[in-house]
Design a binder for these strands. Structure first.
Lengths: 146, 146
DNA sequence: GGTGAAATGAGCACATG
DNA sequence: CATGTGCTCATTTCACC
């Protein structure tokens, strides 16, 4: 992981479909050298994959919410993770410091979907005391790199 | 936006670097037809772009946090958005319903960076009463499609 | 990591239903 | 109007240096 790798990753984050020749010109290497580095970065898991960035509004994924999950007693991150993984509306989940035990980002088609997902969180995850939901009103920023 | 478009998008979300021929075989069209649809989806803004998915831990972006922003009085989403946009550590920001006015996802290099970003939020954004920060302990889920 | 050749895929004009 | 076909050119991807 040297500086060239970082510049290659930066380029790929900005344009995930950029050709090796363009990246090579950017970082000052040949195209095959860039491909070898990208292959290695993917194999090492530094680059986990490539994806299309979709406008949620235009796709009909209208309702998004941030949900604090508060649990009774103690629960392992692994147990939380495997339970959350079964709920497809959960796009991001993380255990956090502070009063809440975990924070979820839920993306649902409509309010009904959101309600259903929240109900599954409360029933399928062990020891959930309560959830605190903040529904997204307007998306201000959606960055993919710093 | 028909069902074929949705399947193309689904394919591109799963693999942002997939060739048109592979997508074509998947959805039952020819490669040029798929390219035309993808070009249209990008032009229409349904697909906003393509990006590499990077493992934050392996990149040294070690500290991530969800931050509730509580404001005094009223503030427009536009004012919040333009203020947040100046702080590069903020990767996602949205106004929300409930007690908080906005929720941020901040990705910082270390705790010092996080602290600096939070200080900027409190000073550069108008009418901020207080912030409530939950530092991510472990990432459980990071999905890019439902 | 660079170079060159072979294979693969992109991208375009034109014809078709 | 959107798709399919055949072609040309660029890119990828592999060998080897």
């Amino acid at each position: 992981m040297d500086d060239v790798d970082r510049r290659i990753i930066d380029h790929l984050v900005r344009d995930g479909r950029a050709g090796y020749a363009r990246i090579a010109a950017d970082v000052g290497l040949s195209a095959p050298a860039v491909k070898r580095r990208v292959d290695r970065l993917v194999a090492d898991g530094v680059v986990k994959g490539f994806t299309a960035v979709v406008d949620p509004d235009l796709m009909g994924w209208a309702v998004e919410a941030y949900v604090e999950v508060h649990c009774r007693g103690t629960i392992t991150p692994e147990a939380l993770g495997s339970a959350f993984a079964r709920i497809p509306e959960i796009h991001a989940a993380a255990t956090v410091s502070g009063q809440a035990d975990a924070i979820l980002r839920i993306v649902a088609r409509d309010v009904r979907d959101l309600e259903r997902a929240l109900e599954r969180v409360r029933t399928e995850v062990d020891n959930v005391d309560h959830t605190d939901t903040a529904i997204v009103l307007s998306r201000l920023i959606d960055r993919y790199t710093g």
